[in-house]
Amino acid sequence: MSSSFHALAALLLLSFFIASMADFSKDVDITWGDQRAVVTNNGQQLSLSLDKTSGSGFQSKQEFLFGRFDMKIKLVPGNSAGTVTAYYLSSQGPLHDEIDMEFLGNLSGQPYTLHTNVYAQGKGNREQQFHLWFDPTADFHTYSILWNPQQIMFYVDGALIRVFRNHESSGVPYPSKQAMRIYSSLWDAEDWATQGGRVKTDWTKAPFTASFRDVSFNGCVWTGSSSSCGPSTSGWMNQAAVTSDLQKMQWVQKNYMIYNYCNDAQRFPQGLPTECSLS
């Protein structure tokens, strides 16, 4: 094929990528925190702040039933102990579904902890935790959630770190029927976030600030009774982890995973959850 064809294909791909970028001033609602949530750069960047009075947060205007969601985040620098920066999908109600990525603050010089979890029909307790292998406060890094009918995949800078597969046929609840919004927040969780709550928030360091940009909501939009999927659906609706993804995940889990509920027999004296024994 000619070089001009490749150039055109690349331009079209870039155009779609840009078009899929959300505008914070149009596509999200600031849900709490008053002036602690600030949109800048013509809607392309948003910052959340936390002080002793309040944290802050936002949510997507639209709900989605399946999709791929990418967010570039620069986390709270310095002594962020006690703080949590959250990026997650959730439905509403006591039997809600939820897919979590939460970043637990640290004392200066210690690694951030990425806490992941999956709720289905109101039940969670599926935590995996990782130390990040870079300084997430020095620059923006991309955190992604891919959610389709077959599995949920968590990515950091394009590297797969976790897969939660659909095992409904084996009686394991899976988030497949409830539409969810995308949420982000910055809040105080000093009772548990850092070293199990032993390290408290140092309010002399407030306000704490996290920044967000280049957010992409690429999913099937829920209209109240059905979902509407765009032309890019085929890119993620049936996506599964390929060998290179799984190799990267194995490397991350071997070197940076610090907790896996499927290895915590003491927590589940009646036996590990069903999915832990399924591939």
Results as ranks from 00 to 15, higher is better:
L114Y: 03
A189K: 05
T31E: 11
S184A: 11
D139F: 08
Y119S: 04
G43A: 12
T142G: 01
A210T: 14
D100F: 00
N125Y: 15
G57P: 01
I99W: 02
L186D: 00
N117D: 14
M1V: 10
Y88R: 02
T209D: 06
S185K: 05
G57Y: 00
F217T: 00
D70N: 10
V156R: 00
A138Y: 06
A240T: 07
D70Q: 10
T201P: 01
D214G: 04
Q250W: 04
W236D: 04
F130Q: 01
R198M: 09
N263H: 13
G78N: 11
G219K: 01
E102K: 12
A179G: 06
Y143A: 06
Y88Q: 02
L272C: 09
G124S: 12
C229R: 02
K61Y: 04
A265Q: 11
T40V: 15
G219A: 13
D264P: 09
L272H: 08
D191I: 06
S60V: 13
V242F: 06
L89R: 12
T223K: 07
F5H: 13
Q151D: 08
F5L: 15
E275R: 00
V156H: 00
Y256H: 14
R267Q: 07
R68A: 03
G109T: 02
L160Q: 04
Q239N: 05
S20T: 15
D245R: 05
E98H: 11
N117Y: 01
V39Q: 14
D23T: 13
L272T: 12
Q110K: 08
R126Y: 05
S169D: 14
W203F: 08
I161W: 03
S56M: 01
D70Y: 07
S211C: 14
S185L: 05
G93L: 04
W32L: 12
T274R: 14
L12K: 12
S15F: 09
I182E: 05
Q128V: 11
N125R: 15
M237Y: 07
N117I: 06
Q151E: 12
Q92D: 15
D29R: 12
W32Q: 13
A159I: 13
D34Q: 12
V118H: 00
L12D: 07
D139C: 09
A179T: 04
T142F: 00
A138M: 08
R213Q: 15
N42H: 13
S60Y: 04
F64L: 11
S80W: 01
N106L: 06
W133N: 07
P94D: 10
N41A: 15
F58N: 09
L246K: 12
S225N: 11
F268C: 12
R213E: 11
W147G: 00
S244Y: 02
M153P: 03
D157S: 07
S234M: 04
V156Y: 00
T243Q: 08
T204I: 08
K205L: 10
N166C: 11
D34I: 05
S25C: 11
Q150H: 09
H115K: 10
R213W: 07
W147H: 05
N106M: 10
I161H: 02
Y88I: 13
G219D: 13
Q92C: 09
G67P: 06
P94L: 03
N42V: 14
Q150C: 04
Q239L: 09
Q266S: 10
A159Q: 10
I99P: 03
T142H: 03
K72Y: 03
